[in-house]
Design a protein around this nucleic acid. Structure first.
Length: 128
DNA sequence: CCGAAGACACATA
DNA sequence: TATGTGTCTTCGG
């Protein structure tokens, strides 16, 4: 775990997720988190893209619920996932208004170097 | 078990 | 732009 946090601190996200215990997490969610952890700093991906990598695009909504309740918010870069519209999307912040969550999310992304065109992230920031 | 809800996607008008 | 529909995992009764 310390290893992971160190990697994050050094800006090396996408680091190994291996050492984390995911035994009590459903297989589906493990897949989601695995893909999510591959997204590097300064890039974003979409719920649909993750869904597609796992299986099919139809899983998009399910991916959303999986990410929303991710148990490792500091380790898994859940802020690097945006809807296909490329808008910022939501960011669950219990107790706060959705708008605040989006604001925070966007702030994090910008700090990581993601470029924005208006209310949307630029396609260049999309991770392939 | 079953029903409802969800950090979505996409087609249609 | 605005609605409506398709799909799948979770969670609560």
């Amino acid at each position: 775990m310390i290893e992971i946090l160190y990697q994050l601190f050094m800006g090396r996200s996408g680091a190994k997720l291996k050492s984390i215990d995911l035994s009590h997490v459903s297989a589906f969610r493990r897949k989601v988190y695995r893909e999510l952890s591959r997204v590097p700093r300064g890039r974003v991906t979409t719920y649909g893209a993750i869904a597609r990598k796992i299986d099919s695009r139809r899983f998009a909504r399910a991916v959303g619920t999986a990410v929303a309740s991710n148990p490792l918010s500091l380790v898994i870069p859940c802020h690097r996932v945006v809807p296909a519209s490329l808008e910022v999307g939501n960011y669950g912040m219990p107790g706060r208004k959705p708008s605040e969550g989006s604001y925070i999310k966007r702030g994090i992304l910008q700090r990581e170097g993601v470029e924005f065109e208006g209310s949307k992230v630029s396609k260049e920031s999309l991770w392939v």
